[in-house]
Design a binder for these strands. Structure first.
Lengths: 209, 209
DNA sequence: CAAAAACTTTCCATTCTGGCAAGTTTGCAA
DNA sequence: TTGCAAACTTGCCAGAATGGAAAGTTTTTG
């Protein structure tokens, strides 16, 4: 009776997601405003109206809270790949799955507030080495998931064959390079285009230009 | 008169390197023996006969101390690439550079004690998520260096062109997959062979098998 | 509705972090 | 050789992080 779709299960689940989101956002906002090491866990917890202990029930630290959004996003790439039609060539499906999460098509030129926060968080990461490791860990986790999806699709055994993990890692590496290049450089090129370019290079064996 | 080669500069430098090595080794040994969270910085410092404060002058924490050896090794890949003859094709040079550090040719079947420690440390990392991030950071740092070396060799601008960073990232990703696969699996294949296989796949555009 | 399960909070003992200043060692040149 | 300066180590310490335990709340379930 209650469940309509696979999302909002119950009140409890919804509240947890909200708390998690509130904590993550508060962390990002405060760290952007005051700088990474001028923010304590207690302050973040206070800003989100929970106890400091609750913060630690959700995240292991500031870094994890900041990278949480990125982790979710990266994790969804595997879901997206699983949702692609079975007949579609693997690499086409992969490129579409990555773009769906990292360079979503916007109707008009409006980058959703969600996306703006993502950019904000990534810029914070680039400026703070202490955060780098956390994002790398998020990418690694997402790649693990992606490797499983690739294994399913190709009918390979993820624990025996290297191919799934190899492709997942390379996809993760290439995506990260494109995103970072886009954030660093003077945004001379839309992420959309850069992703296409990077994957074209990878699928053609990275020939020396 | 004193300096014979480019290594041992002075007494001071040598002592620092020794202290650093001693700390790193002590950390690995203790963590292997007692388990990651049954080891404190004070114990490590005591084991290396220095103060706890000195430990922190060298490393930001246990994780960094454990990953230090891996970082050095990965950093040397860029040096090795720079040392390859200029006429050699880029990918040949890269593969050789990687192998020189990750799968060194051993005269007889004797893996140097240095290599045994490397394996030991990596196994520790696989078993402890808290360490994963640190190794990923080490890889990222090494890739940055590798990207510069690739830029030099190809005559590209590392800050403008994506190619150097892209190749460095993919090389890092592929190497990591090979090494991990070798450590996880029942070592069904020597790292040597696995690296060759992985790079062959990458340079041919990762075709679906 | 009441028990059970899940989550939050308070309390607290350890450990981590990093700045500071005093004590040592090493490098260098007069 | 002597003495100074730079570099390194150490003890001290306060603020923050970490994570276990148990009591207090809220949601779920029978």
């Amino acid at each position: 009776m209650a469940t309509d779709d696979g999302e909002a299960t119950g009140l409890r689940e919804r509240k947890k997601r909200e708390t998690r989101l509130a904590l993550s956002r508060a962390t990002i906002r405060l760290c952007v405003e005051r700088g990474w090491d001028n923010v304590t866990v207690d302050e973040i917890a206070a800003a989100a109206d929970v106890s400091a202990r609750t913060f630690r029930n959700y995240f292991s630290g500031k870094a994890e809270a900041i990278a949480a959004g990125h982790l979710d996003r990266a994790m969804r790439i595997a879901d997206e790949l699983r949702a692609r039609p079975a007949g579609e060539p693997l690499w086409d499906a992969i490129v579409i799955a990555v773009r769906s999460q990292f360079a979503p098509d916007v109707p008009d030129g409006t980058p959703s507030p969600e996306d703006r926060r993502w950019r904000e968080a990534l810029l914070l990461v680039l400026s703070e080495p202490a955060l780098h490791g956390e994002v790398l860990k998020a990418n690694a986790a997402a790649q693990e998931e992606l490797a499983l999806a690739i294994a399913e699709r190709t009918g390979l055994d993820a624990s025996r064959d290297v191919y799934p993990r190899l492709v997942a890692s390379v996809v993760g590496a290439a995506s990260a390079v494109a995103v970072e290049h886009c954030l660093r450089a003077d945004a001379s090129m839309p992420l959309e285009t850069l992703l296409r370019e990077v994957f074209a290079a990878v699928t053609s064996g990275l020939p020396v230009p």
